[in-house]
Nucleic acid binder design. Structure first.
Lengths: 241, 241
DNA sequence: TAGATTGTTAATCGATTAACAATC
DNA sequence: TAGATTGTTAATCGATTAACAATC
């Protein structure tokens, strides 16, 4: 999913503040904790136990504490975590202290929806530019931004300091778009096209494939219906804890 | 992410055809192999090696062979895999031999795009009904389907044999929608709302949170820029293989 | 102090990978 | 037969979890 460069055993020389190595599984959960913490903050709580936060994030509390211990020691034994402090720590770790500019390529069905998705803005990102290869769409205003032609990518990316790109094109176009993004200096790509992208070392790719999510659910449906049709009683038994 | 019931050590009595236990990580990759295989089939190849398929799916070949070995032995040593046969096997395993009916709840920005997403139809699913809580949207035709009021969920789900639901509502509404889906007999949910759902045992939930994907990328951006700003040379060194 | 809760340890579990014997 | 490639083994690695000592 994400091309990942091992950061090595932190073998550094200078007195630079060390960014600790975080397990990838932990990194993937931090945003969930952050979302839960914002929710908790909104309800007026300024302290939360690992048990409470874990419940809000849908994980078990041992895992949560283990995850947070990688960031440092920001809880108080016998009390819990200071919500505001923990929000700050996680936001810092995720690099969300600056609002990051994002380029969105492909303003079809899905791209159009993503361009208007309020969750990006509220959670640390700014859609800074929209691109499409179709001249007929260039100039079209979406959510306050005019769609630009893909050929302008490099210029705009430089001008807006864009390091993150979102691909919402058909699969057939995605690799070319990825190449263009990389050429424009983008080093992180979120790919909604159902295909594998090849990118140089140092560029991170994450993929969201909507049909794959349904197919995974389909697998479990298939299992569930197979169990149901077994001779009496077995279904319950096999479902276990 | 997905509430998962361990299926137990296959402890069965009767002579029912055994569905082998598959590691969850393998299940999550099968759809990717399937997509790659369809692509390979379209290019006219009827045989593919593990090396070739692995490359097309973006994984290493040892992992691919290990994954496929869980389904049984469908390759030929010295030759490779029969593309059509493997497609059939994976589709069977994923329960894609029947086209599955899906209910989509919430036809805002994102829901609208999902309702029109061709990838669902082409990869085993049929959006059978659209729902919204907003009476103003009820009756609106989207992609050949009229939006219905959420109160009709149970009736329609039964009539259309819907077992899979997609939630594309605001977070605040998502839990109520999930409850309604479960009450209507839905046993698999794909949740696009940024919140944790609580569902009964036996119901599977998968979650897609678009902002979380960007936040994970942001983390890596943060790391990369920290490395870049280190005193000369270290950046290259730390990036490693 | 007594009660609560963190941070850490250590055991367990599952996933990945390289290597290679089996076999086409 | 020789070459190619699978399916499996076994070692390694990373993630999860329960338990509890540390400490507020």
């Amino acid at each position: 999913m994400s091309q990942h460069r091992p950061t090595g055993p932190n073998g550094r020389s200078g007195g630079v503040p060390a960014l600790p190595d975080l397990p990838e599984a932990t990194v993937a959960r931090l945003p969930e904790y952050l979302r839960a913490l914002h929710h908790i903050a909104e309800t007026g709580n300024d302290t939360i136990s690992s048990e409470g936060l874990a419940a809000a994030a849908g994980v078990n509390s041992a895992k949560l504490r283990k995850d947070l211990s990688h960031l440092g020691s920001y809880g108080t034994r016998g009390v819990g975590y200071d919500v505001a402090l923990l929000i700050d720590q996680i936001e810092f770790t995720l690099g969300l202290t600056q609002r990051r500019a994002v380029a969105l390529v492909g303003v079809g069905n899905l791209g159009h929806a993503l361009a208007g998705y309020a969750g990006f803005a509220s959670r640390g990102f700014r859609i800074a530019a929209l691109f499409d290869a179709d001249q007929a769409r260039v100039g079209e205003p979406i959510n306050g931004l005019d769609v630009r032609h893909i050929s302008e990518l490099a210029t705009v990316a430089a001008a807006e300091s864009i390091a993150i790109g979102v691909i919402a094109t058909p699969a057939a176009a995605a690799q070319d778009v990825a190449d263009a993004l990389v050429a424009a200096g983008v080093t992180s790509i979120l790919n909604f096209a159902p295909c594998v992208l090849s990118v140089p070392e140092g560029v991170d790719v994450r993929k969201v494939d909507l049909a794959i999510e349904l197919q995974i659910l389909s697998f479990h449906e298939h299992r569930k219906s197979a169990l149901t049709s077994l001779p009496g009683g077995l279904a319950e038994e096999a479902v276990g804890t």
